[in-house]
């Protein structure tokens, strides 16, 4: 892979990490008054998958959408302002953290109901196919989303119509504090189950950004060529609490041993090691990147905090079309 591509991947990973660490740091100020689900530890899957897309491709996500939105190129200022509930937020403050959208960047929405955007992503691909638009649509989902009926209904239709959809499943082993063991039978391999519907299935290390990218490229190429949907399962792990800025290992729903093992597999540190070894990245470049991103973030936080709250008049707008 070219030096510039690799450095860019690293930079994207670092940016996601720093954005969410900043959110975690600022959250206790109680100015972001909405639930936040952070993707810290899961960045490589988002970056790898989105880096495989072309302009004009779309994606949708669920309750944990920050990384997907940003990896698609979603506007950082508008996301921060949305978390702060400001008029300049990507939904004008009406959505909050779980409902990000940036249509210009191809991020077509996220919703708080588990699995509900899966059929929508399939539908976006269906609509595009009907209109003859060559577009791939990525549906970001978690390991719990495949337990919902809509996943299976939508997957069936996607295969039936050979729709250009990539189901990008970030398997982080948990749904809130419930491990896979109480939700799916022992031995279940999610992507194999998906394959049984007749779609192509791929799987790999979601903490390895190059592997995620390589798999996503295969998936996207397959989908774009008209062969139908692909299920891409990426193994990863959420570091912090399910919802909120803190750590929750004290609750005892997962072991410290497991947590520490995954922490060692930090997608960011792993890639940094790779790039340093290849002599592509040194302290100087890293320092510069960090400084750049920090400046961008400072500006975004300032933008959000300085933005006005939504005008009370907007409460009743957007309920229906034509009402401003």
């Amino acid at each position: 892979m070219q030096r510039a591509v690799r450095l860019d991947l690293y930079r994207r990973l670092l940016r996601l990490r720093l954005v969410e660490e900043r959110i975690a740091e600022l959250y206790p100020q109680q100015e972001m008054r909405c639930p936040v689900h952070l993707s810290i530890g899961q960045e490589a899957a988002a970056v790898g998958v989105c880096a495989a897309l072309e302009k004009g491709d779309w994606s949708m996500s669920g309750h944990r959408p920050h990384a997907h939105y940003l990896a698609m190129g979603g506007d950082l200022n508008a996301m921060m302002a949305e978390l702060y509930g400001r008029a300049t937020g990507c939904c004008g403050g009406k959505g909050g953290s779980m409902h990000l959208i940036d249509r210009k960047a191809g991020f077509m929405g996220a919703t708080a109901i588990v699995a509900s955007t899966i059929p929508m992503a399939v539908g976006a691909a269906f609509g595009s196919q009907v209109r003859g638009e060559k577009r791939v649509v990525v549906s970001f989902l978690g390991d719990a989303a495949v337990e919902e009926g809509v996943f299976h209904e939508a997957a069936n239709f996607a295969v039936l119509k050979k729709l250009p959809v990539v189901f990008a499943c970030e398997n982080n082993l948990y749904s809130v504090y419930s491990g896979l063991g109480v939700r799916q039978p022992k031995g279940r391999v999610i992507h194999r189950q998906a394959a049984s519907y007749g779609m192509k299935a791929l799987a790999g290390d979601g903490n390895d950004v190059e592997e995620s990218l390589a798999l996503a490229r295969q998936a996207v190429a397959w989908a774009r060529s008209g062969k139908g949907p692909v299920f891409l399962e990426l193994a990863t792990y959420r570091w912090r609490e399910h919802c909120g800025p803190n750590y929750d290992n004290d609750l005892g729903y997962r072991t410290m041993k497991e947590y520490r093992a995954w922490r060692k597999l930090c997608p960011l540190e792993a890639y940094e090691r790779v790039l340093r070894k290849a002599k592509l990245l040194g302290d100087a470049e890293l320092g510069l990147m960090r400084k750049d991103i920090a400046a961008e973030l400072d500006a975004a936080v300032r933008f959000a905090k300085d933005s006005p709250a939504p005008d009370p008049k907007t409460l009743m707008t957007d309920v229906y079309a034509g009402a401003a």
């Binding site: 403050g93 009406k94 009370p312 409460l315 009743m316």
Partner: peptide
Amino acid sequence: LADCPMPSTPALANLC
């Protein structure tokens, strides 16, 4: 409630 879906931002939700 105000006759709209519940907005996230407290600036609007508080009015509902």
